[in-house]
């Protein structure tokens, strides 16, 4: 798998008069799980959409790197998978039909698809629900199906927008275990979340507050450095630091 990483430099984005991002610089290194942590309206979704090429920055720059060499977004894109925050699957299509649709979009050959989908159904334990329609899946299963669609093509970079939002604690733990299993293969994973307890599950965290980057780094080191017991504390003290 090619090593994918993304850097941004003083990234800005406005929606009319609203400044969603006020000059943020991220360093998303290959092979790690990066967390975008922040409350609603912090700019997490905007950041991920910018990274996925779904929005254009107002100012600042994005640098996509493949195997140590800067590459264009067009070259980077085929290895990129994105799972939006809002429901974006088709309620009237079954689990199997979703996988087949994404197989065709990514032009996977029959053998690869068979192996990969069996593997994904196994680890997500959705095998029994192949024929169930997405509209009838529980919240956790729905998110897992979304993740399967994103992982089907074995991406080198995976962007997940609040994948555990509204999911019960046990499903959330399972979801993270799925992510860990993937990151072992050198995949760049960027996950946004509003759950502070999930920050510690990431290799690197980026704390976002109202469009600004409050702090970034390895979670435990960050807590030590700020003398904080939890990430909530860093957010509450945010302005003072």
């Amino acid at each position: 798998m090619a090593g994918y990483s993304i850097k941004t430099d003083t990234l800005e984005k406005n929606f009319g008069a609203v400044k969603a991002l006020k000059g943020v610089s991220f360093d998303f290194q290959e092979g790690l799980i990066h967390g975008l942590i922040g409350s609603d309206g912090a700019g997490k979704t905007t950041t991920l959409r910018l990274l996925a090429g779904l929005l254009r920055p107002a100012d600042g720059s994005l640098t996509y790197v493949r195997d140590g060499r800067p590459s264009s977004f067009a070259e980077f894109r085929p290895g990129l998978a994105y799972m939006p925050q809002q429901a974006s699957l088709y309620p009237d299509l079954s689990v199997a039909e979703h996988l087949e649709f994404f197989r065709d979009l990514y032009r996977l050959d029959a053998a690869t698809f068979k192996k990969r989908s069996a593997e994904l159904l196994e680890i997500t334990r959705l095998g029994k629900f192949r024929e169930r329609r997405a509209g009838q899946l529980s919240g956790g299963m729905y998110k897992k199906l979304g993740l399967m669609c994103a992982l089907l093509q074995s991406p080198s970079a995976l962007l997940l927008d609040e994948p555990t939002n509204g999911v019960d604690p046990i499903s959330r733990r399972e979801f993270w275990e799925l992510l860990y299993a993937q990151s072992g293969s050198g995949m760049l994973i960027i996950v946004s979340t509003a759950y502070m307890d999930e920050a510690e599950r990431c290799a690197r965290v980026n704390l976002l507050d109202s469009g600004r980057l409050l702090a970034a780094g390895e979670p435990r080191a960050l807590l030590r450095e700020r003398g904080a017991a939890s990430f909530e504390e860093i957010f509450i003290k945010g302005g003072a630091v």
Partner: peptide, 13 residues
Amino acid sequence: ENGSMELLLSTPL
């Protein structure tokens, strides 16, 4: 409305 356009646009489609 379904939100699926966001997903479609992020694929090679």
